[in-house]
Amino acid sequence: MRLSLSGVSVQLGATPVVSDCDLAVGDGERVGLVGPNGSGKTSLLRTIHRAIDPVAGSVALDGDDVRGLGQRQISRRAALVAQDSAPDFDFTVEEVVAMGRGPWLGPFDRTSARDKATIVGALERVELANHRTRRLSTLSGGERQRALVARALAQESPLLLLDEPTNHLDVYAALELLELVRDLGRATLCVLHDLNLAATYCDRIYVLHRGRLVAHGPPVEVLSPDLVQEVFGVTCTHVTHPVTGGLLLAFSPRKVADL
């Protein structure tokens, strides 16, 4: 297992936000984490890089407990694309991607030819090679997220973590980003809000509800109308996508009058 969380409980201050969660991501597997706002998705994700330490349970990367690994070791095994936030310092695309080499370079190391090749490779992979001297603030939302994915690629870690990467993206950019992530073929844990995107792009899905994992498995089984009703409080119907033949959740308006 690239990542395994067992019995993880998290508190923020004295408030419990996640209780007794078991979650695993295998090699090359794309796993989605869904749940309503405030269900604890981001808190769970933040335990992996030890931004929060769980009050109970353990987090392991490639079988090693993260508490026994140094911060550098953790970052060589898992890269994070955090939620999009306005950057305080306006780096260029290339500078951002170069940060991904940080886990592999000591204070006295210069950026080697191999590091540079890795950076260029990552930029080309996300199709931003032409934008490498652009400042992050001048990019579109989709381009900005792709730059952060390139930083994660430059990190060369086998596990990729994404926290709501399609927030603020238009539908084209969202599909483009998730297809890019899918085609990378890396083990991925991705927090998503859009259940249809999760159903389309994830092999397995975990559902977090009030700090507890209430279901996991293939999207068709997990995202049943009953579960969606109970966890998200909305009515949906399973439809077969007319073109792809895949699962499509058709949501009904909440008020009967709107029907």
């Binding site: 890089h49 911060q71 994070l80 955090a82 940060m99 940080g102 990190q155």
Partner: peptide, 20 residues
């Protein structure tokens, strides 16, 4: 310098880039 770059990118980003 690289550590300062990572810190400038935010705490969670810095942690995921290997900075304690």
């Amino acid at each position: 310098a690289r550590t300062l770059n990572a810190l400038a990118a935010g705490d969670d980003a810095a942690l995921s880039l290997g900075v304690s």
